[in-house]
Simulated assay, not measured.
Amino acid sequence: MITEIAHLTIDPAQADAFEAAVAAVSCVFRDAPGCRGMALEREIEDPACYRLRVAWISVDAHMVDFRNSEGFQRCRAAVGQVLRG
């Protein structure tokens, strides 16, 4: 098993919209072949920073199967609008 840790930075004023977008696509992660779970964590020290942790059965399940899926595109579209650079 591997753990993907994505460090995401947003405009803190968009936190509610960001968290709602991640919640809306959480099923995409959970239904993806090879995904064993995911969690979104907000940093206390910097409210603009989040960590998205996703457990995968293998690197290929993450980097090949999921990254080349329609689900990945849905996730990027849903949260991409509130991400900073």
Score class of each variant (00 low, 15 high):
residue 67 R to Y: 08
residue 20 A to V: 03
residue 28 V to L: 05
residue 48 A to Y: 05
residue 72 F to L: 04
residue 30 R to Q: 13
residue 24 A to P: 06
residue 13 A to E: 07
residue 36 R to Y: 03
residue 8 L to N: 00
residue 45 E to Y: 04
residue 70 E to D: 12
residue 23 A to H: 06
residue 11 D to Q: 09
residue 48 A to Q: 02
residue 34 G to P: 07
residue 78 A to N: 00
residue 60 D to E: 14
residue 47 P to Q: 00
residue 67 R to S: 08
residue 38 M to K: 01
residue 53 R to I: 12
residue 34 G to T: 05
residue 61 A to Q: 05
residue 38 M to E: 13
residue 47 P to F: 12
residue 84 R to H: 00
residue 70 E to A: 10
residue 77 A to W: 02
residue 8 L to Q: 08
residue 13 A to M: 01
residue 32 A to M: 05
residue 39 A to F: 06
residue 65 D to H: 08
residue 5 I to P: 13
residue 6 A to C: 13
residue 40 L to Y: 06
residue 84 R to D: 04
residue 19 E to W: 05
residue 25 V to T: 05
residue 27 C to M: 08
residue 83 L to K: 04
residue 31 D to A: 14
residue 67 R to E: 07
residue 26 S to A: 15
residue 62 H to I: 09
residue 55 A to G: 04
residue 17 A to I: 12
residue 78 A to P: 04
residue 47 P to E: 11
residue 65 D to S: 15
residue 10 I to D: 02
residue 4 E to L: 15
residue 60 D to H: 13
residue 18 F to H: 01
residue 62 H to K: 08
residue 12 P to S: 12
residue 75 C to Y: 02
residue 61 A to R: 06
residue 72 F to G: 06
residue 24 A to H: 14
residue 35 C to Q: 07
residue 35 C to W: 12
residue 47 P to T: 10
residue 24 A to L: 04
residue 37 G to Q: 04
residue 67 R to T: 07
residue 36 R to G: 02
residue 40 L to R: 10
residue 49 C to M: 01
residue 11 D to N: 14
residue 61 A to G: 08
residue 4 E to G: 11
residue 12 P to L: 09
residue 44 I to S: 13
residue 3 T to C: 15
residue 21 A to Y: 05
residue 52 L to Y: 15
residue 69 S to F: 10
residue 45 E to G: 11
residue 51 R to F: 14
residue 49 C to T: 00
residue 10 I to F: 14
residue 74 R to G: 05
residue 48 A to P: 00
residue 61 A to V: 11
residue 43 E to R: 14
residue 24 A to N: 06
residue 30 R to V: 11
residue 61 A to N: 02
residue 53 R to K: 13
residue 71 G to D: 08
residue 75 C to K: 06
residue 9 T to L: 13
residue 19 E to M: 02
residue 71 G to I: 06
residue 79 V to F: 07
residue 85 G to S: 08
residue 73 Q to W: 07
residue 64 V to L: 06
residue 65 D to Y: 00
residue 70 E to F: 06
residue 79 V to A: 09
residue 5 I to S: 06
residue 62 H to G: 07
residue 21 A to D: 01
residue 29 F to W: 14
residue 61 A to C: 14
residue 58 S to R: 09
residue 85 G to R: 02
residue 59 V to D: 10
residue 39 A to N: 11
residue 5 I to W: 01
residue 38 M to N: 06
residue 12 P to F: 00
residue 19 E to K: 03
residue 30 R to C: 05
residue 65 D to P: 07
residue 14 Q to A: 11
residue 84 R to A: 03
residue 36 R to L: 09
residue 32 A to V: 11
residue 2 I to P: 12
residue 64 V to W: 11
residue 26 S to R: 09
residue 75 C to V: 13
residue 73 Q to Y: 03
residue 52 L to F: 15
residue 77 A to N: 09
residue 61 A to Y: 10
residue 10 I to K: 05
residue 15 A to P: 06
residue 40 L to N: 04
